[in-house]
Design a binder for these strands. Structure first.
Length: 494
RNA sequence: GCCCGAAUAGCUCAGCUGGUUAGAGCACUAGACUGUUAAUCUGGGGGUCCUUGGUUCGAGUCCAAGUUCGGGCGCCA
């Protein structure tokens, strides 16, 4: 590395560290985020630079303009006071409209107006980019519908709503890692490309480099995947669970967290073709341990959101869903109820409720049943355990009764199922029997069977659809607003 | 994949039983006023009423098909 670049790197590190400490004595001007500025993060009257995008502009005949500036660092905008004495006041400042990019240098002072503690008294405003046609700029200082904003996914992060969602999403993601790390889990990066051809969790997207217009054929005229990139059929993962079980049986407490792909033609506000899923897996654990882990996990994430994103959550409570904050408080405060599937069915049958889908032992619970259990019967989050073996996946552990498996669903008031998990079948003979029962070829799962042949131990885990949790936390109604660029059947714009 | 609903200005919407020149708020623009807070007040510009076809003397309005969006259900996280 040349001396010049080393010096440049040193200089950058030096200036950055000063920003963090808030000290400015060695520097003519500190750069502050809006969040830092609003917190008074520089000595009163000292010169600072703040950069961001214009939210609104209000002109005053008293010889000044007010410019609300956002940079995404927090919910609230910074009020910039621009005096008419600025050399570019008429040419630039009075032409500022929503969305313009600007750099403001000035002095951070206590605000003379109400509504904010500090404001920026501008000495200079540099416009880095005007909005080409303010009349047709899609993001206006008003409430837009989420449906409209989906059409402008590249601009919607500039709104209050999507700024708040983005920050909460980040906080939940980091809280997830923090909590699991504190609990002794290791993050295992399971593959996104998989060659398991029957994972059973849903339709898969094919990964191939074959020329669709000229597919290679074998002797029987079938497509010859031996000539494909991986010399066999390959797909995008629908779950990292099977892979992470191997690491669980070595590192004891592990989890996957990454993008997951389902090629199902699901057109609902709860489904994405590409979403993020977290799958913790614990060795030497049974179903009860699994439920305890899920409860602590959800509560830790919610607590982090309430602690760290108070401003955004207040916005959701005010504009999106009234009880956005109070229901998280309740969720954290109440211990989860735990009931058996068999008891849940009995309760549903005795409820006197009219359900669209009839209830009887052996059927899977519908959303209406799950919501009645969580909202009416229990009134707080509930873990339903031990489902009929016929309706659950092959890897779930058969109970001693021979007719149920150690599966669990966490149901919450307001959404229904948010977590699904199970104790895994660790006994090879039982696993083989269940694979046969489900028509699964053991040849495709030799490595998975090995885990039962070499030092098998009881283990359990669960899966959480991250965007579904974000929908719940923010009070959203459509999962397409919980991910920056939603992918759904017929849609992969942007 | 199945069923239901909607489509009018840049955005959010009104538009009756088919009848003259299709309206409002926000945004934009001009002016007034003001340490303002999605400021307020007064004017102005802005429309392929989703598309195509049909019924009718006459269609934003009724009918059919299509397109797009949304909701419910299924599959699921």
């Amino acid at each position: 590395m040349s001396r010049f670049f080393r010096m440049l790197r040193y200089y950058r590190a030096f200036t950055c560290s000063k920003h963090d400490s808030g000290r400015t004595e060695f520097q003519a001007m500190a750069t502050l985020s809006v969040k830092q500025a609003l917190a008074g993060g520089a000595p009163e009257g000292s010169s600072v630079e703040v950069r961001g995008w214009v939210r609104t502009r209000r002109d005053s005949k008293a010889g000044l303009s007010f410019v609300n500036l956002t940079d995404g660092s927090c919910f609230a905008p910074l009020q910039v006071v621009a005096p008419a004495s600025l050399p570019n006041y008429a040419s630039d400042v009075q032409k500022l409209s929503a969305g313009c990019g600007i750099v403001v240098r000035g002095k951070l002072v206590p605000s003379q107006g109400k509504g904010q503690a500090f404001e920026l008294q501008a000495d200079a405003i540099e416009v880095t980019g005007f909005v080409e046609d303010p009349e047709t700029y899609p993001i206006q200082p008003k409430q837009h519908t989420p449906e409209f904003l989906r059409e402008v996914a590249h601009l919607r992060p500039r709104t209050n709503l999507f700024g708040a969602i983005s920050r909460v999403r980040h906080t939940m993601m980091t809280a997830l890692h923090r909590h699991l790390t504190a609990e002794g889990f290791y993050w295992v990066n399971t593959p996104i490309i998989t060659t398991s051809d029957a994972e059973g969790a849903g339709d898969m997207f094919r990964v191939s480099t074959l020329d669709f217009a000229n597919l290679p054929r074998d002797d029987k005229g079938a497509i010859d995947f031996k000539r494909d990139f991986f010399a066999r059929e390959a797909f995008l993962t629908v779950s990292g669970q099977l892979n992470v079980e191997a690491y669980c049986l070595a590192l004891s407490k592990v989890y996957t967290f990454g993008p997951t792909f389902r090629a199902e033609n699901s057109n609902t506000p709860r489904h994405l073709a590409e979403f993020w899923m977290c799958e913790p897996e614990i060795a030497f654990a049974d179903l009860a341990d699994n439920a305890d882990c899920a409860e602590a996990f959800l509560k830790a994430i919610f607590k982090a959101v309430l602690d760290e994103r108070t401003d955004d959550m207040a916005f959701f409570a005010e504009r999106v869903q009234k009880d956005a904050v109070t229901r998280l408080d309740k969720f954290i405060a109440a211990p989860f109820e735990r009931i058996d599937y068999t008891d849940a069915i009995a309760a549903l049958q005795k409820s006197g409720q009219k359900f669209e889908y009839p209830v009887e032992w052996g059927v899977d619970l519908q959303t209406e049943h799950e919501r009645w259990l969580a909202e009416t019967y229990v009134g707080r989050p509930v873990v339903v355990m031990n489902y009929p073996e016929k309706i659950k996946a092959f890897y779930m552990r058969l109970n001693d009764d021979g007719k149920t498996v150690a599966a669990m669903d966490v149901l919450a008031p307001g959404i229904g199922e948010i977590i699904g998990g199970s104790q895994r079948e660790e006994r090879l003979d039982y696993l083989d029997r269940r694979m046969a029962q489900f028509g699964i070829d053991p040849a495709h799962y030799q490595w998975y069977r090995d885990l039962r042949r070499y030092g098998t131990v009881p283990h359990a885990g669960f899966g959480l659809g991250f965007e579904r949790l974000l929908v719940y936390v923010c009070g959203l109604t459509n999962i397409r607003d919980a991910i920056p660029y939603p992918r759904t059947p017929g849609h992969a714009e942007f």
